[in-house]
């Protein structure tokens, strides 16, 4: 069977604190590194009972990196892992972002908060395939902005913060509205917290454009058996782990 999901005990190569409370954990995982598509995720053991979903942030040779903010027991556990320690990683899972094939149509990345974690790999892959990329990035404050230099390698970036401590003061939807006023013919890729997704989708609807949105719902299994991480599509619930996490904004009732 042509199957590209793996269940491995991966070894931590390094843990980097790239900013206060923001870590990147790198694991040696040749199979996951080889088969990951931009926007996919893994389920990772993190000292809790259930595994936790993590976006795949970057691939470097045989290693996969995961960017996260330390917020609880699971992320705390990961941030304290030492090199050579192993955890169970299951992936890559789910459907990622779909590149249109039309390279004259630019890609517009809209990231909110830790939602940025999925985009370095997306942006690099798109860039290497010849797409023009622009990133709109909103965060709470200056202290919560990560990956900016990295994203700049692939295209322009505009920043907005809730408190105005960096870039403009406000929400990322405002940047999106400005951008869509200038040019609607862009492929919009979105990831961020649920309230941000809601306002971004609302803005897209007002401009009559569809975005590819990476959704997040509380997940138990990550591979389609538990039916927990569902989201409403028409009159049915679909699984964010299998049918998503990236889905078309117009397919979801939000």
């Amino acid at each position: 069977m042509n199957f590209k999901q793996f269940l491995i005990r991966a070894e931590l190569v390094k843990n980097e604190e790239i900013q206060k409370d923001y870590f990147v954990s790198w694991f040696h995982s040749p199979d996951i590194s080889k088969f990951t598509k931009p926007g996919q995720f893994v389920m990772m053991e993190s000292g809790q009972y259930l595994l936790r979903p993590f976006s795949i942030y970057e691939i470097e040779k045989e290693c996969a990196g995961f960017l996260y903010r330390v917020i609880g027991g699971g992320t705390g556990f990961l941030s304290r892992l030492r090199p050579n320690e192993r955890v169970l990683i299951h992936g890559p899972l789910g459907k990622g972002f779909n590149f249109s094939g039309n390279k004259s149509k630019p890609i517009l990345i809209v990231a909110g908060g830790i939602g940025i974690a999925t985009f370095p790999l997306v942006a690099r892959s798109a860039f290497e395939s010849g797409y023009k990329i622009k990133t709109l990035y909103g965060a709470r404050s200056n202290n919560d902005l990560v990956c900016i230099d990295q994203m700049k390698k692939y295209g322009d970036i505009e920043i907005i913060t809730d408190d105005g401590s960096s870039g403009q003061k406000g929400f990322v939807t405002e940047l999106l509205t400005n951008e869509l006023n200038k040019n609607k013919e862009q492929d919009i890729f979105v990831c961020g917290p649920t309230p941000m997704l809601k306002s971004v989708i609302k803005a897209c609807n007002e401009f009559n454009v569809t975005a590819q949105v990476s959704f997040e719902e509380y997940m138990a299994c990550g591979y389609g058996v538990c039916m927990s991480c569902v989201i409403k599509s028409g009159d049915k619930y679909v699984r964010t782990c299998i049918e998503g996490p990236v889905m078309r904004s117009n397919a979801i009732n939000f």
Binding site: Y49, Y218, A220, M227
Partner: peptide, 9 residues
């Protein structure tokens, strides 16, 4: 949703 919640440990 939410349909599940972990009970730690």
């Amino acid at each position: 949703t939410p349909r599940v919640i972990e009970i730690p440990g």
